[in-house]
């Protein structure tokens, strides 16, 4: 489904991603871990199409299409969804009021009829139940005065509405208490299918008990320096990253 080859990206001339290779198949869950500043969010942003990042080398193929050539909105319409690590506030725009526009543009792209107000509302009700989010929250200005947990829940709610093929969850678990974590992961799990794939960026093994990964990758200094199965996450939780850093830094420095 997604094939990333030798991806290099920089911001304002500083290289951040320095040769990422990653293959993801339908039905899989990949966890990406790694120390702060290693480039996890940068990878997520590059996949979603943020313009500040300049891709200097490499290619990304998503369902047979050159992802990097698509606009951010077309990527979303093709089925890429990014749950932001730091969802921003947008005064004056409520989730309800932009999401209908979004959903109908996505549907149009996919050759589906637009949803009228009634159908949209009933779909909303269904998905709201999934992440246990309150309608009142959705009619307020996006993320303005939302708690950390509410922001993250809103991201997953939007994901549920847009039914993506590839979901990238950037630290959706950070700052959640255990109840919220369970609700959010439950939502994510219900949305998973044979046809979809998920990338979870996280610092904590805790999330991976709920959303069980098929593969775990460690990102360090803009490269995937280690890949394994879910046991790798346990090992990282126990030992931290120093051993990996040492391994990498000793071989890399020439």
């Amino acid at each position: 489904m997604l094939s990333i080859k030798n991806l290099h990206a920089s911001i304002e001339g500083t290289p951040i991603l320095r040769g990422i290779n990653l293959e993801i198949k339908a039905g899989e869950v990949h966890a990406i871990m790694g120390p702060n500043g290693s480039g996890k969010s940068t990878l997520a942003s590059v996949l979603a199409g943020r313009e500040e990042y300049e891709v200097t080398e490499g290619e990304v193929v998503f369902q047979g299409k050159e992802l990097l050539e698509l606009s951010p909105e077309d990527r979303a319409r093709e089925g890429v969804f990014l749950a932001f690590q730091y969802p921003i506030e947008i005064p004056g725009v409520s989730t309800t009021n932009f999401l209908r526009t979004a959903l109908n543009q996505v549907r149009e792209y996919r050759g589906l009829e637009p949803l009228d107000a009634v159908k949209f509302l009933s779909l909303m009700k269904e998905k709201m139940a999934l992440v246990e989010i309150d309608q009142k929250l959705l009619s307020r200005s996006l993320n303005e005065g939302f708690s950390g947990g509410e922001k993250k829940r809103n991201e997953i709610f939007q994901m549920a509405m847009l039914e993506p093929v590839l979901s990238i969850l950037d630290e959706t678990d950070s700052g959640l208490d255990i109840d919220a974590l369970r609700i959010v992961s439950n939502g994510v799990n219900k949305l998973k299918s044979e046809k979809t794939a998920t990338i979870v960026v996280t610092h904590y093994q805790r999330l991976l008990e709920y959303i069980v990964p098929d593969f775990v990758h460690v990102l360090y200094k803009g490269r995937i320096v280690k890949s394994g199965t879910k046991e790798l996450a346990l090992e990282l939780e126990e030992k931290g990253y120093d051993w990996i850093k040492e391994e990498v830094d000793s071989t890399a420095t020439v």
Binding site: E73, I88, V106
Partner: peptide
């Protein structure tokens, strides 16, 4: 706000509409 614009685009809304939505909210 370019970040806000990107957020809306990342949800599937085209750039022009995203801008329009934000400006409209500003004037709202």
């Amino acid at each position: 706000d370019e970040e806000a614009q990107f957020y809306l685009q990342a949800r599937g809304i085209d750039k022009t509409t995203a801008k329009g939505l934000l400006l409209y909210a500003f004037a709202g």
